[in-house]
Nucleic acid binder design. Structure first.
Lengths: 195, 195
DNA sequence: GTCTATATCGTGATAGAC
DNA sequence: GTCTATCACGATATAGAC
């Protein structure tokens, strides 16, 4: 029954990823060393390479996992209904998803330039796909004649920037509940698109 | 008439700052070496230390200069009038100012975590002062009874995030003129605050 | 004011013992 | 799977010649 000493592969991998996520978000990818990550997990630096081919891949796999989760969660929360309903669902989803993932969001937006060109293209395509989800809702609202939006592409980017901004100030112990925040941002969004 | 060989103090300082700005924005503070900056200017690394005590101070002075310029330019563009007029002026100013300074903005938002604690406090105070400029306009509009804004603090942050978002996509050679962009964002802002 | 040379240290990654 | 030891390199910053 005794395990081989130091053999913890099932939990060491996730712990390394969690440590990298936390440190990258706090200090930036370039400023964090493999030795720091190893120390956080309680390993020597060399042992990390049993779990990742290199530092770049560690960053990429964190961002890729985040984007995949974002897109699949969005698809299941923002499904059917008229444009106004789907817009409301998108806003609620975006805020709820981003509130609990400050580190992931920070990395997804700040570390794009530290990805290799191929990795950047992969992540950027996923980011565009997410943007297009909102873009399609705005286009649908225009077709239905219920939105007043002069430029759907610009509006999409403006709304996403506004909504994502919560990550820079929202704290769970503040005076606003998640529902309060959702309500405020939904009202701004609703009015901005002319509903 | 002949200058001492290699003596260019009046122009070398600004060139170093310009090179650092460009490189920090492109690759991030932590990822840029003093050697890279020196090479960009055509110097050896050691010569940089005639102009800055260290790398940290180079970053800080760039951010400080940017924030000082932002605040003084804002103060001179957004002066008097009713709340709606001042809001319009703020939006126009913010967009115009941010459009031409992609590198500065990028650094101001991305490199806060690479500042020493004291330097961070200085920059953060200036950022709050800028935020308060918009906050005061929203409060004034509430007092005048012309804005419909449930939470001025949250609305301030939401609007600034939305407006600052232009730096991530606007390109001068795109299909929109600066005036077009201002118009779109002003309309969204105006409607969002209920004017 | 800029250069060359250097001190000191930390980096990512690998090899081989256990 | 983790360790120790190490390689090859690049980092910031300084010293002293010119």
């Amino acid at each position: 029954m005794a395990r081989t000493q130091g053999s913890h592969s099932e939990i060491t991998g996730p712990r390394i990823r969690a440590a990298a996520l936390k440190l990258f978000a706090a200090h930036g990818y370039a400023a964090v060393s493999m030795r720091q990550i190893a120390r956080e997990v309680g390993l020597q630096a060399g042992a990390l390479y049993n779990y990742t081919p290199d530092k770049q891949d560690l960053l990429f796999s964190l961002m890729k996992a985040h984007m995949d989760e974002l897109l699949s969660a969005c698809a299941s929360h923002v499904t059917s209904g008229d444009a106004t309903t789907r817009l409301r669902n998108f806003v609620d989803f975006h805020i709820q998803f981003h509130m609990g993932r400050a580190d992931e969001i920070f990395i997804a937006y700040m570390e794009l330039r530290n990805l290799s060109p191929e990795n950047f293209e992969t992540i950027e395509a996923l980011r565009r796909a997410y943007e297009d989800t909102l873009g399609a809702i705005l286009e649908a609202g225009l077709t239905e004649g219920v939105f007043d939006v002069p430029d759907p592409k610009v509006t999409t980017r403006a709304l996403i920037a506004m909504l994502t901004g919560i990550t820079t100030w929202y704290r769970p112990d503040g005076y606003l509940s998640p529902a309060d925040v959702s309500e405020i941002y939904w009202n701004m969004t609703r009015k901005a698109v002319g509903v």
